[in-house]
Amino acid sequence: MNSFKKQRTKFIVLMLMPATILLVGLTLFPFIVSLILSFTDYSLLRPGQTKFIFLDNYIELMTTDEFWIALRVTVVFTVLAVLLQVIIGVFIANLLHQETHNISFLRTIYLLPLAITPIAATFTFRLMFNPSLGVFNYFMKSLGFPPQAWLASPSTALFSLIVVDTWQWTPFILLICLGGLASLPNEPFEAAKVDGASNWQIFTKITIPMLYPFIGLALLFRSIDAFKTFDIIYVLTSGGPGILTRTLNLYAFKHGIEFLSMGYAGSIAIIMLIITIVVAQIFLRKNNLLKPKDTFKR
């Protein structure tokens, strides 16, 4: 029995080793550096005169309107974009799973937004959103609606960014759900059909619950990534109008890379990390995703 336990431990350690070494090696040093920097006034402008200022960066951050606005923008953007993506993604995945014709073709088309070089897609959106030359306003006018300022108007800018993000990332949810659907056993579905359940009943009573871990994971990863969104906002609005679409990550970029205040930027990053950790813990615990469902009894 003892040798059996040893064998088990050895197997676990060996299988976890490569991932552990890689992640410790890659993330530990940068993390510690930015954690320490966040307690200093380190700026590349005067690297020799760095002082330890303890929580000053955090206090400064908490008392700045801009931080709270950026936090609100980030949260609104993340929640709305991810919700939209999950709803559309799960719905389409389920429809595609039932479809019998051209599945390969459709799946490939659906994956395209994820496959295209993002910078090309983002600049294409910038061109399409252009109020005077863009195709969106051309459609609006053709359909008899007034043209919109899209990215320049306080009422439509964030919405436009959410649309772009949804276009780009719904395929991610879709792909995970398709993989999930493909690995689900068939029996429950067949049994339900025999019992005369409607498609909708099957969807809500069987598909969703069985797919739930996958939806949860897709939602989790999308939220983590959306919380850090940078590229599309940087290219499309630069955080405007005013600072109404400026996210935390954009705010950190301004301070860290453009103003070279690495200490301050570090504190923004740490706050973002703390928020994400707390929300993810709550989410994973509530949904019982943190621990494995069922493990070998031996």
């Binding site: 252009n130 109020p131 005077s132 030359l133 043209p147 919109q148 300022a149 899209w150 320049a152 609005t237």
Partner: peptide
């Protein structure tokens, strides 16, 4: 100015 000029950078100004 044109509609949405608030989001204009070089590209938009020159293209327009």
């Amino acid at each position: 100015g044109p509609l949405g000029v608030g989001n204009y950078h070089w590209y938009e100004c020159l293209n327009d």
